[in-house]
Design a protein around this nucleic acid. Structure first.
Length: 614
RNA sequence: GGUCCCGUAGCUCAGUUGGAUAGAGCACCUGCCUUCUAAGCUGGCGGUCGUUGGUUCGAAUCCAACCGGGAUCACCA
C-alpha cells in the first residue's frame, strides 16, 4: 500500500525537509514526515499549499497560531520558493513565488513532464477474457476500457506491460450454440447472412435456449417434474454428448467447433479494433483447461491440501478466515479454480520476469480471487505476492441489471455506433467542419463518439458499481470526454493561428531567453487564472503516478477534467493572441501549449484520442 | 444465516492517509457570440454526507450497532 506521502509532487519534496528543519530549529523536536500533509489551499484563502499544524501541537508545546507562525516564518526565510505565508486558526497557508511557477512552466513547455523513466518491471494485465458463445456487451466494455487504460498508465509510468486475455472457448455453453446451429442453421455462415460472426453464433445460443424451453414444456406436459425436465430435453442431452465428443477429440465436432469459433474471433477482432485495444498473450481454455491438476496433486503430496473420503481434494482456508474449498472432484476431474491455478503457474513459467499479474475481473469474483491467491501462496510461489485482482463494479441500466433473457443487454457494437452517430448529429448541426472531407469527418466523429463512451465508463471509480443511462452517456457537454477534446482542439487552433500571425513566434515564446523566466529581475506577476492552470499542470505527474499505483484511471480522468476546466476559465477571460505585449503573449501561448500536450498525453493514457479541431 | 462491498444535491458522480463554510456535471432559472472555436464561460437554485451512538481540539472520512441496496458462500464457469 502506498504511504501517504508517496504521491507528493516536486514542491512538496522541497518543502517537507524544510518543515522538518523548522521543527528542529524552533522546537528542537523531530517530526514524523508521514504526519505532515500538504493540501491545496482553499480558494477563499491566500496561498497555494496549506499545512495543518494541529497534529504537531504536542510536539511544539505551543498554540496553533504560534506554531504555524513559527514554521511559516522559518520557511519564508529559508526556502527560496516560499514567498509569503499567512495563518488562519491552525492552518498555515503558504504562497509560492511566481518564479517557481514560471520555472516549472518553462520546463513543461520544453519537455514532457509526464515522462517516467523505465523502472525495469514487467507487469501482465489480463482483461476482456470473453466467452465465445455470445457477442461483447456493455459489461465487457467497462472491463476492456479499464484494462486497456491501466495498461497504458502502467506503461507511461515506466513498466513493461504484457496485455493478456484468456478466451473461454470450450464447455457446454459453446456446445449449445453448435447444436442449435446444426438443427436450425441451414448452413448459415457470416458470409451467407451478412451477420458478424460473433452475432451469428450468439443468435444460435439464444436459439438453443428458446427451443430448450419449448422441450421442457413438452416434457412437463407429459408428466416429468420441472427440475428433472430441464436436464432431460433432447437438446441438452445432445449438447452434453457433444461436449464428451469434443473432449474425445471427435474430428467432426472439433471441425465445427473450430469453424464457429473462427467466426466469433473475426467478430471480436472487429470490435476490439474499433475499441482500439489489443493483446500480446492470448490463452484459450481449450489449451489450458487441463492445467493445474498436477499442481494440486503436488500440493497434496506436500501436505498443503487434504483428501476427503470420496477422493476429492480440498484446501482449508480457515486460518485465513475463509472456508474449505474443493480443488479437484472425487473422480479426479478439474474445476474452474484448478485451471486458474495452473494458468497462473504457466504464465510465470512463460514470463519469469513478471513482478505483477493483474486480473481485471468483476467484483462478483472477489471471493474466488482471494482463494486463488491464498492457494498459490500456500503452494510456496514467491510471486504470489504480486498477484492482484483489479475488481470493478457491475454496470447497471436504469431499469436494473442487464439480462440477456430479457433482451436488455446493451451490445458493444451497437452502442459504439450510436455514440458515433450522436457525435455526428451534433457535429453536423454545429457546422464548423464543412470544409472537412467525408473521410476526415468520419474519423473525427469516430474519435468524439468513442471519447464520450470511454470517458463515461472510466471517470467512475472502478471499484464502484455504476449506472449507465444511455441518455446521459450520449451527452457531449459538461464533464465528458468531448468537453476535454474540445479544449484541446481549441488550443491547437490557437497555436496554429499563432504560427501564421506571428511567424517569429518561436523567438517570442517563453523560453530561457525570455525575460520573465527568472525570479531575479523582472518578475511577471501571474494572473489568478494563469496560476490555477499551472498548479493543476504541476499536480499531474503525481496524479498519474497515483493512478498507476492504485490502478485507478478515474483519478486521472477527473484531474484532467479539472485542468481543462481551469484552462477554459483562463481562455475565456485572458487574451492570448490579442495580447499586445509579446512576452506575455509568448508566455500564454506556452502555457496553452503545455496544457494541450499534457491533455493529449493523459487522454492517450485513457485510450482516448484528441482531435486537432472539432 | 456467514463474509465482503456500497449508501454524499432531484439524477449521475468527486471528495474518504480525520482538518477551514462538503464540490462538480446534468436538470431548472439567469446573463455572455461584429473580439483567439458558445461541444464554451458567468451568476442562481439545490445537502440532516442512510440512522443512532462512540473515539477527539476536529468526523462525509475511523469504530460499533441498526436501516436500505448489491455481491458471494456450487464436486458451475
Amino acid at each position: 500500500m502506498p504511504s501517504p506521502n508517496m504521491f507528493q509532487d516536486r514542491l512538496q519534496a522541497i518543502l517537507l525537509p524544510a518543515v522538518q528543519a523548522a521543527f528542529q530549529a524552533n522546537f528542537q523536536k523531530e517530526v514524523d514526515p508521514k504526519a505532515v500533509s500538504f493540501q491545496p489551499t482553499r480558494p477563499e484563502f491566500e496561498g497555494d499549499l496549506t499545512i495543518n499544524v494541529f497534529p504537531f501541537l504536542k510536539i511544539s508545546g505551543k498554540g496553533p497560531e504560534q506554531t504555524a507562525t513559527a514554521i511559516g516564518a522559518y520557511l519564508q526565510e529559508h526556502v527560496e520558493v516560499v514567498d509569503r505565508f499567512n495563518v488562519v486558526k491552525g492552518f498555515l497557508n503558504i504562497a509560492i513565488a511566481d518564479s517557481y511557477w514560471l520555472d516549472f512552466l518553462r520546463e513543461a513547455a520544453e519537455k514532457d513532464i509526464l515522462q517516467f523513466p523505465s523502472n525495469g518491471k514487467q507487469v501482465m494485465v489480463e482483461y476482456a477474457s470473453p466467452n465465445t458463445n455470445k457477442p461483447l456487451h456493455l459489461g465487457h466494455m467497462r472491463n476492456i476500457f479499464l484494462g486497456d487504460a491501466v495498461c497504458r498508465i502502467l506503461k507511461a509510468t515506466g513498466n513493461e506491460v504484457i496485455r493478456a486475455q484468456v478466451i473461454n472457448d470450450r464447455g457446454i455453453h459453446i456446445c449449445k450454440s453448435m447444436v442449435a446451429w446444426q438443427h436450425y442453421g441451414n448452413g448459415e455462415t457470416p458470409a451467407s447472412s451478412g451477420l458478424k460472426g460473433d452475432k451469428l453464433v450468439g443468435k444460435y445460443y439464444v436459439e438453443f435456449d428458446k427451443n430448450h424451453k419449448l422441450q421442457i414444456a413438452e416434457l412437463v406436459a407429459a408428466g416429468t417434474p420441472g427440475p428433472e425436465a430441464e436436464k432431460k430435453t433432447p437438446l441438452i442431452l445432445e449438447a452434453q454428448n457433444m461436449l464428451r465428443q469434443w473432449e474425445a477429440n471427435d474430428p467432426e465436432v472439433r471441425a465445427l467447433w473450430s469453424t464457429m469459433n473462427g467466426w466469433v474471433y473475426d467478430g471480436f477482432n472487429t470490435t476490439y479494433a474499433r475499441m482500439g485495444v489489443g493483446f500480446d498473450s492470448v490463452y484459450h481454455e481449450s489449451g489450458t483447461y487441463l492445467l493445474g491438476k498436477q499442481d494440486i496433486l503436488d500440493g497434496l503430496a506436500k501436505g498443503v491440501f487434504f483428501k476427503k473420503d470420496d477422493g476429492s481434494v480440498w484446501v482449508d482456508n480457515a486460518p485465513e478466515g475463509l472456508d474449505e474449498k474443493v480443488l479437484l472432484r472425487g473422480d479426479g476431474t478439474s474445476l474452474y479454480i484448478t485451471q486458474d491455478i495452473g494458468t497462473a503457474i504457466q504464465r510465470f513459467k512463460e514470463f519469469p520476469g513478471l513482478s505483477q499479474l493483474i486480473y481485471t475481473v468483476g467484483n462478483e469474483q472477489d471471493y474466488h480471487f482471494k482463494v486463488l491467491f491464498i492457494i498459490l501462496k500456500k503452494l510456496g510461489y514467491s510471486w504470489a505476492d504480486g498477484l492482484h485482482h483489479l475488481s470493478y463494479g457491475m454496470v447497471d441500466l436504469p431499469h436494473g441489471k442487464m439480462k440477456s433473457r430479457e433482451g436488455t443487454v446493451v451490445d458493444a457494437d451497437d452502442l459504439m455506433a450510436e455514440m458515433v452517430q450522436e457525435a455526428r448529429n451534433t457535429g453536423e448541426e454545429l457546422s464548423k467542419l464543412d470544409d472537412l472531407s467525408g473521410a476526415e469527418k468520419d474519423e473525427l466523429f469516430e474519435q468524439i463518439g468513442m471519447a464520450a463512451l470511454k470517458y463515461f465508463l472510466l471517470k467512475v471509480d472502478p471499484k464502484k458499481r455504476m449506472l449507465f443511462d444511455p441518455k446521459a452517456s450520449i451527452d457531449l457537454q459538461g464533464h465528458t470526454g468531448p468537453f476535454i477534446q474540445y479544449t484541446h482542439a481549441r488550443i491547437r487552433s490557437l497555436l496554429r493561428k499563432a504560427d501564421t500571425l506571428f511567424p517569429a513566434v518561436e523567438a517570442t515564446v517563453f523560453s530561457e531567453e525570455a525575460p520573465m523566466n527568472t525570479g531575479t529581475t523582472d518578475i511577471y506577476a501571474l494572473l489568478p487564472e494563469e496560476r490555477n492552470v499551472i498548479k493543476l499542470l504541476h499536480q499531474m505527474p503525481a496524479v498519474l503516478q497515483e493512478s498507476a499505483v492504485k490502478l485507478d484511471p478515474a483519478a486521472l480522468a477527473n484531474q484532467t477534467y479539472e485542468l481543462v476546466k481551469a484552462y477554459n476559465g483562463f481562455y475565456q477571460t485572458v487574451p492570448v493572441l490579442k495580447e499586445e505585449d509579446a512576452d506575455k503573449r509568448g508566455f500564454r501561448l506556452s502555457l496553452s501549449r503545455a496544457v494541450a500536450d499534457v491533455v493529449k498525453k493523459v487522454m492517450d493514457c485513457l485510450g482516448i484520442a484528441v482531435p486537432e479541431r472539432m
